[in-house]
Amino acid sequence: MSLEPASIRRIASLARIHVEDAELPALAAELNGILGWIEQLNEVNVDGIEPLTGAAQMALKMREDVVTDGGYPDKVLANAPERAGDFFAVPKVVE
C-alpha cells in the first residue's frame, strides 16, 4: 500500500499536524519508504497467533476507592499557555 498526497493530508489532519503542500512530496517519499520496508511482515505466517499487546504478563492490579489526589488547581494550571481564572482557555469551540 502506497500513500497518495491526499491520504497523507487526511492522516495529518487526523493527527492535527499542519502540513504545507510543499512538504507533501518529500513526506510521501519518506513514509512510503518506511511502509514499503514494513511490508516484509506479510512474509510471516501468523495464522492462529494471539496478538501480544505488551510485555507485562500479569493481570491488572486494582486500587482502593479512596480520594488521594487533586485539590491543587494552581499546580494543574501553572504550565497553561492561557488561563482564565481557574479555567484553561482556548479559542471558542463550535459544537
Binding site: L41, V46, A55
Partner: peptide, 11 residues
C-alpha cells in the same frame, strides 16, 4: 494487529 502477532512470535 499483524505486528502484534509478530511480536508474540518474537517473544
Amino acid at each position: 494487529l499483524r505486528a502484534q502477532k509478530v511480536r508474540a512470535l518474537i517473544l
